[in-house]
């Protein structure tokens, strides 16, 4: 339906130019949709260009809507949004650092418990016999060889 198409197009254009940090974006867009529907009740077959002419362009709508906020409200809203993004940035940074530290810790532990060769030597019948045990991961003996010297 043409009306739905014009409303969607108008709202899409308003979303593109909606200023960052301004308060109550969802509420404003919902209100806009209702206002457009009300407008179309009185102008059912209007074209998009005539819609902008009588209802106002997306730019003028945003200008008028924003003028309803006091400078104090706008300042507070932008400050709050900034704070939220900073906190989110810090949390993401902490998660990334924790991940990197975790990887380093695990890698270090793997190297520590990697192949350690223990050579035991003993004398049997005048001969020196060495026994090499290759131990990996908590002393599982995977290779046990006797070396006669």
């Amino acid at each position: 339906m043409q009306q739905t198409k014009h409303i969607s197009r108008y709202i899409k254009n308003v979303k593109k130019i909606f200023p960052w940090g301004y308060p109550k974006k969802k509420k404003i867009l919902k209100e806009l949709k209702n206002n457009l529907k009300t407008f179309f009740n009185d102008h059912p077959d209007i074209s998009y260009d005539d819609l902008c002419l009588h209802f106002g362009t997306p730019d003028s709508y945003i200008d008028d809507r924003m003028s309803l906020y006091s400078p104090n409200e706008l300042r507070r809203s932008v400050q709050m949004k900034k704070r939220k993004y900073i906190i989110l940035g810090v949390i993401i940074f902490i998660i990334i650092m924790a991940f990197i530290c975790g990887v380093i810790f695990i890698k270090h532990n793997i190297e520590k418990h990697s192949a350690a060769t223990i050579t035991e030597g003993f004398i049997v019948g005048g001969e020196i016999i060495t026994d090499e045990k290759i131990i990996i991961h908590d002393e599982h003996i995977i290779d046990d060889k006797k070396i006669d010297e």
Partner: peptide, 12 residues
């Protein structure tokens, strides 16, 4: 008055 502006004021 543009009707868009007017509806905004009426909502308020």
């Amino acid at each position: 008055i543009l009707e868009g502006s007017m509806y905004t004021i009426l909502n308020r």
